[in-house]
Simulated assay, not measured.
Amino acid sequence: MQNLQRLFTHFACICALSVLALAHDLRVFGTNPQITAMLELLYPQGLIGLNYAPYPEDRDFMPDGVATLPVLGVIGGGKMLSFEKLLSLKPDVVFFGEPLAQEIADSYKKLGIQVVTLKSHDISHLAHNIQIIAATLPIESRARDLQEFIATTQSRLSALQEQITYRPKVYFALGLDGLQTQCANEAHADLAYQIGGINALSCAQLSSSYTSINYEKLLALNPDIIFVREIALYKKLLTNPPKQWQALRAVQTKQLFYAPSSPSNWLTKPPPSVMQIIGIPWAFAKVQPTLLSQEEAQAIVFSFFEKFLRPLDVPSFKRLQGLR
């Protein structure tokens, strides 16, 4: 009888904790921008802080209330995470990227904070990371919707990949001068390949996938299409390109595109986020417009924003692409 009473008491405690958890949103934090970008989509109501202050152009595209959250920093670079400031906001769950040192995990766990680790960002790890987040937070329906969106979009792109007959050379112009870039390590895993092209620069004999080049090297590469990371450089290349750039095929044919970065980066550096879900089909439509039309790419973007961020209109979509 006593054992039965203990079991009933234990069950009642579990139920009480479950009711308490449902009575309020869990307070969560992601320790790097890639994780925070996923939490913005899946559980914005529970976020207690950001890794960096959002840029003014990002604010209109972020979920309600997220842009004004306090900046707490990041683990692994940039503004270092303030442990004390984070604790003052009483988080229930803190998400880390792998690998996570045991002593760091223990410092949170001993304070009653749940520690969850996710794989480093890669489009191939998205499904895994969403499953882990969904197992931790009460977001089963929303996570399922996001998984379905990813699966549908990737299935469509995979089918289109098989129809490509010509891959133009793609260059990713990073940095204020456009001379930092992302080269190709493995052709089929490379971003340029995923968007229907081939990277103008191979990583062979380079020490890093992110590298700097000079104008002479860029001219030798002479890409067909350029995706520009910085909006100021993009506008200059469109209206008044520097003399060295004027000889480039992509500049002459105006095959220049600003890579959207709101509310977080759609394509490449700084490290890409879950927004690649729409960034890759958006860019694919620029590289292979006969296989995926601009209208179809726009429909994918609009659907994503309506489901997971906030509804877009045509002027806002143009602004995202640096066209306003």
Rank of each mutant, 00 (worst) to 15 (best):
T268M: 01
S212G: 07
L221W: 02
K90H: 03
A23I: 03
E162L: 10
W245V: 08
I150P: 08
A105R: 14
A151S: 12
I280T: 14
F11Y: 09
M38C: 05
G279T: 10
R144P: 05
K286F: 08
T239P: 05
F304T: 06
D60Q: 11
L26S: 11
T152Q: 15
M1I: 15
L137Q: 05
P168G: 11
I225Y: 00
P271Q: 03
Y193H: 09
L118T: 06
Y55A: 15
S18T: 00
F95C: 01
P281V: 07
D92T: 04
I278A: 04
L291A: 02
P91R: 01
W245R: 09
Y43T: 01
A105L: 07
E306I: 03
Y258T: 01
P242K: 05
L39T: 09
A297R: 04
R142P: 03
E295A: 13
E306P: 00
A187Q: 02
L179P: 12
V74C: 11
L86F: 00
G322W: 07
S262T: 13
L221C: 08
V116R: 01
P263M: 09
P54C: 10
L81E: 03
N222A: 08
F95A: 06
P272M: 00
L233E: 15
K254E: 14
K307P: 05
P289I: 04
S120T: 04
G178C: 12
S141Y: 00
T68K: 07
Q194W: 13
K243A: 15
G46P: 13
Q255V: 03
L160V: 01
C183F: 04
E40N: 09
A16R: 12
Q205Y: 07
Q131F: 02
E306V: 05
F227H: 10
R310W: 03
P54Y: 06
N51D: 09
S209D: 15
S124N: 14
W245F: 14
I231K: 06
G46L: 05
G73I: 02
K110Y: 11
K119H: 11
V116M: 01
K286V: 11
L39A: 04
R229G: 13
E230Y: 12
N214L: 10
P33T: 00
D64H: 08
S120Q: 09
N51L: 05
H121I: 12
A127D: 14
